[in-house]
Design a protein around this nucleic acid. Structure first.
Lengths: 102, 102
DNA sequence: TAAAGTAGGTACTTTAAGGTAACCAATATG
DNA sequence: CATATTGGTTACCTTAAAGTACCTACTTTA
């Protein structure tokens, strides 16, 4: 689990997963444009990590110019549901904080 | 959620939670001895973060020498169940990897 | 003929995180 | 009188991660 958390932790990672879950599979450039401020270098690195963990798939088509699509694998979907429940917790706690600050 | 993940990610953090869940509340020194290799500096820092997020409580008794106990709050318990399901995923994937390496 | 779009790779610099070690107060103990 | 105990704090150094900027090949479009 430590490995898994270590993968998720890096900046951008959960953002990328979030986008892929909501928008479906996207091309590299689309993904980059959807995540303001991320550099190609970071996006590539994160996607490689997620691909290695088989959370994201990479579909490369050697056309000119090349087309590469990224999307969630089955594991990615499973992870999504767990992250959703974690998100639920975080949201509730955040809400409770706001209420107590009142 | 990003904040929450960022808190959990640091080295030692999940280890600390794991120990507190299994062993119950512990003193600073006990905790430190239970987690081989961690420095006081890191342990303090992680505990402060978890305390701020109200995942762990801190019970300070100004005796001499002082006694400080750490344990999981209600939030800590809730988080524990979610982390357990994340752990389950990680374990299953790890097993699948071993099987495919065969 | 120059620019734009495609999916990155590479080199360099900067920043933040983590590790190490020394130090503290106050008392009990030998 | 020196030492150990407790729960840290502080200063310092090192390393790894992230950011910045520029580069590629090939084609289409203006």
């Amino acid at each position: 689990m430590d490995q898994l958390l270590r993968l998720l932790m890096g900046p951008w990672t959960t953002y990328i997963l979030w986008v892929l879950e909501n928008q479906g599979t996207l091309r590299f450039g689309e993904l980059k444009r959807t995540i303001p401020g991320i550099s190609s270098r970071m996006l590539t690195e994160r996607l490689r990590g997620l691909e290695t963990a088989q959370i994201v798939f990479r579909d490369y088509r050697p056309t000119i110019p090349p087309e590469v699509r990224y999307g969630l694998t089955e594991r990615g979907q499973e992870l999504g549901t767990v992250l959703a429940s974690l998100n639920l917790l975080a949201q509730r706690w955040f809400l409770e904080k706001k209420l107590s600050n009142h």
